[in-house]
Write a protein that binds this DNA or RNA. Structure first.
Lengths: 212, 212
DNA sequence: GTTAGCTTGTGAACGAATTCACAAGCCTCC
DNA sequence: GGAGGCTTGTGAATTCGTTCACAAGCTAAC
């Protein structure tokens, strides 16, 4: 299989969300045009994206919404349950730990870690905050699939290395630093500072760049 | 000025963060190679990114760290203070409201809104939660620069339209939907579900795609 | 069963972003 | 003050992603 672009995978997520919505509203069939409108892209892009994975539509008619939904869930690997650990019980970490949307979508938070002894042992939402000292042991024994990193920037790289050494293969990084990890580990960044700065840039240079 | 790619602006953010760090550690000069290593890119990319905005380095030597930091802050528009409102006092919204990193970087949260009357009037960190009914009036009178949208997906588009009508020109959207807004409004998305699904995809298709 | 009207799937064309490769220029040392 | 060693800045080449445009194929209507 050809390597799929990141941008394509992102769009599949967007299509999927809208499709799930449509299915619950009883929609049976959906066109690339409709998917494009709701996904903020073009119909050609939608068809191209889907074509990388197969042929899901019927010419003249469109895509069968429930079947396409199932296919996208399958492509994205969302039929399994993924085990997730959160490292860092700060503001963001605890907000995420309590956010039930993850569990609903198959991302099952099994542990929260922190280095601060005052936080260790406290309970949020059935989750006890564990001492980060036990990270490696736990990761080796429980083999979580994904680690969510919400530690301070200065600690992020070191913690990432501990995770990688313990066998983690996927990291969702909230720290505003670029993690250096081996090629077999996948990192996705959620960088609010960067996004805000992007808005700042856009507002500052609106006239220069001619909008958009 | 030529239109600058989004990806370039994102990287400038990353360079800036590392540069600020270097400056506080007393680094005087930095090469594109070093910036690239810490920014997860290549030295040619760094030089190209910077070259869109001017000529900041000295051949044979590198870039003067403090001056380049100042230039990037200027390019990104980070010397002003930006006024920010948060819409939605849920888990994420309140976590953001209490996160002091924003204020430190010049993003000044001036108000939090929610539709839930039980939340309206409660106080977090010197911020009173206001009734979303007063959104338009407040936006028109206080003219915030950026709105952070942390409302449920089903409400996101409607709230975005209210914001746009009231004159907002930049939105940081946390709802996992693609907002439809006029071209003069800039939207950046922070979509944790999408990022997690990207990791799910990577884990699922590791073998097919040959790692990375 | 044929026609009219859609919509998909996909090579080809295009455009955007990244990488290459090297001349230009600066600093240090002798 | 000239040579050697680096590092920048940038056109050119390349790679990657998006858009175009149209043949193929489905449905409905008669």
């Amino acid at each position: 299989m050809k390597r799929i672009a990141d941008s394509t995978v992102r769009r599949l997520s967007v299509y999927l969300r809208f499709l799930e919505d449509s299915v619950t509203r009883g929609v049976r069939t959906i066109s690339s045009e409709e998917l494009a409108r709701r996904g903020g892209t073009t119909s050609a892009q939608v068809r191209k994206d889907l074509s990388f994975f197969g042929s899901f539509g019927k010419r003249g008619l469109g895509y069968p919404a429930p079947e396409l939904t199932a296919s996208l869930r399958d492509i994205l690997g969302l039929d399994k349950e993924w085990q997730v650990v959160i490292i860092g019980a700060g503001k963001i970490g605890t907000a995420l730990a309590q956010y039930h949307g993850f569990r609903q979508r198959g991302f099952n938070i099994i542990a929260v870690y922190d280095a601060d002894q005052r936080k260790v042992g406290s309970t949020w939402d059935n989750l006890v905050v564990r001492d980060i000292a036990s990270l490696e042991g736990d990761v080796r024994s429980q083999a979580p699939d994904i680690a969510v990193l919400t530690v301070p920037s200065d600690d992020a790289q070191a913690v990432a290395e501990r995770l990688v050494n313990a066998g983690i293969k996927a990291i969702l990084n909230f720290a505003p630093v670029q993690l250096q990890v081996p090629a077999e580990v996948t990192v996705r960044n959620v960088n609010m500072a960067m996004e805000l700065e992007g808005l700042s840039y856009a507002l500052t240079n609106r006239d220069r760049n001619g909008g958009a």
